[in-house]
């Protein structure tokens, strides 16, 4: 993928805060610090990757990862942006809801199921589970099979 502009931009501005994990014909994966998350996402958007396909998260036991997928509408090119969140007690990250309207629901889903707070989100509340539900089901310490009812957990 010929995206030297993005590479240069990252090297120039965020030398220590972002690294390129892998690069193939179609995909470029960037691991970035959470401080520059919004900034880099905005830059990616301005580069022409205007389709935010997905925001999701994983629980890597020692940390959380937030993973965004950006696509171009014209070419089969994709940037994967990964953000590591070290703080397990109070994980927090900027919200992209100001850049893409679709980020609203994606982030609410992540918040609901993984328990990551999005700073600056206009309407951060549970989306799939109900209000008042305890716990975040997709975390690895949340049991998938248990004798208890799911609402008795947490």
């Amino acid at each position: 993928m010929e995206n030297n502009i993005l590479k240069e931009y990252i090297e120039r501005n965020f030398f220590a805060q972002a690294e390129i994990l892998s690069e193939t014909e179609e995909n470029m994966t960037i691991l970035a610090d959470k401080k520059i998350y919004k900034e880099i996402a905005e830059y990616i958007k301005n580069l022409g990757y205007t389709f935010l396909a997905d925001i999701t998260s994983t629980d890597n036991k020692d940390c959380f990862m937030v993973i965004c997928q950006f696509f171009r509408y014209t070419k089969n090119e994709n940037i994967t942006l990964k953000i590591k969140i070290e703080d397990r007690v109070n994980p927090e990250i900027d919200s992209l809801a100001g850049l893409w309207a679709t980020a609203d629901w994606h982030e609410r889903e992540v918040y609901d199921l993984m328990g990551i707070n999005f700073k600056g989100h206009p309407n951060l509340k549970r989306i799939l589970m109900w209000e008042g539900y305890k716990g975040h089901p997709l975390r690895k310490d949340f049991p998938a099979v248990t004798r208890k009812r799911s609402w008795e957990l947490g």
Partner: peptide, 9 residues
């Protein structure tokens, strides 16, 4: 609109 559709994914 096209831009709305883009923004909402």
């Amino acid at each position: 609109s096209k831009s709305q559709a883009e923004s909402f994914g």
